[in-house]
Design a protein around this nucleic acid. Structure first.
Lengths: 111, 111
DNA sequence: AAATTGCTCATACTAAAGTACCAAAATGGG
DNA sequence: CCCATTTTGGTACTTTAGTATGAGCAATTT
């Protein structure tokens, strides 16, 4: 070393270690600032797509793999109603069929 | 400070900054050690489910929202062939229909 | 009050999806 | 070469999905 006694070198080493740890710690903490996009963003986008609350509800069931009849029973409405909702969803999501709608919805992160 | 000249303090400060940066950098890098589940894990599970390579290929297309006819054209085979593959996939994935198969496949993280 | 919007449901079809069953090539090891 | 598996394909149906159209009802909004 150019300058510095034994004591000085020890102090520098300690400072190095401490700031290294601080660096790791702060970076780790900085990564915990975005786990909020859980709920909230979804409904925002559905609005811009003009998807109604009921349609959105149906969309989620479709994505779970349920048939129109199964969704109808689950939501206590007729199958006709579900067909209407799904049909409207396809138009609004610009999808050719329900599987396509699922893919698009996932890409838009609305489900 | 107990001991140390002006020069010493500057050195300590520099060391602190350098190791702080090193700390941040190494921690950041340490988070890039698992991006391997890209490919590899998938094929493992498909084996356990006895899903053939071709069936797996069809599964991915189904998940993209394509129709049987579209998949057939894309893979240069007949629609009958795709129907056979999809039917086999439903049995192997224990799904009632293609949308259900998508959901199950995603849950198993094989797509 | 009148118009709008969302949810509901029906009828009548057309179009995909899915099942069942069978069978011929193609492929990859042993 | 033979065998097992995969991939391919067809026919014949049954079942879901999806479209088109019209309409009644309740809650808002204007």
């Amino acid at each position: 070393m150019v300058t510095g006694s034994m004591d000085t070198e020890i102090i520098i080493a300690i400072v190095a270690i401490v700031f290294f740890i601080v660096g790791v710690y702060l970076h780790k903490k900085s990564l915990h600032t975005d786990p909020f996009p859980k709920t909230g963003v979804n409904l925002e986008k559905t609005k811009s797509l003009e998807i109604s609350p009921r349609e959105y509800e149906v969309l989620k069931e479709v994505a779970l793999g349920l048939s129109n009849k199964e969704i109808a029973d689950k939501l206590f409405v007729s199958e006709s109603t579900i067909k209407t909702h799904v049909s409207n969803l396809l138009v609004k999501l610009n999808a050719k069929r329900r599987t396509h709608a699922i893919q698009i919805a996932q890409e838009l992160k609305i489900i």
